[in-house]
């Protein structure tokens, strides 16, 4: 293959970049604590003495959760904008950005996680339904 020398050069760059990144992980303190990651990794059968790997998993998890959350935030903002269009008088009340199951399940569906609403029983059909917070 003629691109071999090229890719080997690129590999050297990637190698150094990756090792630099791993070294920089030692200075970071991810939001997800090492102990939690270590606990669940060991529960899954994973074992490694390297702390950097645990940090890497922590960072990857945090990235995943942050992406899901930011998607949910987008959904939340979009829904609020749609509601505000319909009813302007409720504008002040609904301005707070709140993470709800509706938005979360929508954003999680994009990542391949199907989340269903928990079914519940109510004494009257209108219980728990806030017409302002529902699109449908």
């Amino acid at each position: 293959m003629n691109h071999n020398p090229q890719s080997s050069d690129g590999k050297h760059d990637d190698d150094s970049a990756l090792s630099d990144f791993l070294a920089s992980l030692m200075d970071y303190t991810p939001t997800i604590p090492d102990e939690l990651v270590e606990h669940y990794l060991s529960k899954s059968g994973f074992q490694s003495p390297d702390v950097r790997l645990i940090r890497l998993v922590a960072v990857a998890t945090q990235k995943f959760v942050a992406e899901v959350a930011s998607d949910a935030l987008m959904h939340c903002k979009a829904r609020q904008a749609a509601v505000v269009k319909d009813k302007r008088d409720k504008q002040q009340k609904d301005k707070r950005l709140i993470l709800t199951m509706d938005d979360l399940s929508k954003s999680l569906r994009e990542y391949g996680v199907n989340v269903k609403h928990q079914e519940y029983f109510a004494d009257s059909p209108s219980t728990g339904i806030d017409p302002a917070s529902r699109e449908e």
Binding site: V65, L73, I98, T100, D103, S105
Partner: peptide, 19 residues
């Protein structure tokens, strides 16, 4: 904490548990 850093101001408990 992640939700807070993303920009949420509040959350439902069920959503947080799912997350």
């Amino acid at each position: 904490q992640v939700c807070d850093s993303v920009g949420f101001q509040g959350f439902h408990l069920s959503a947080l548990e799912t997350l």
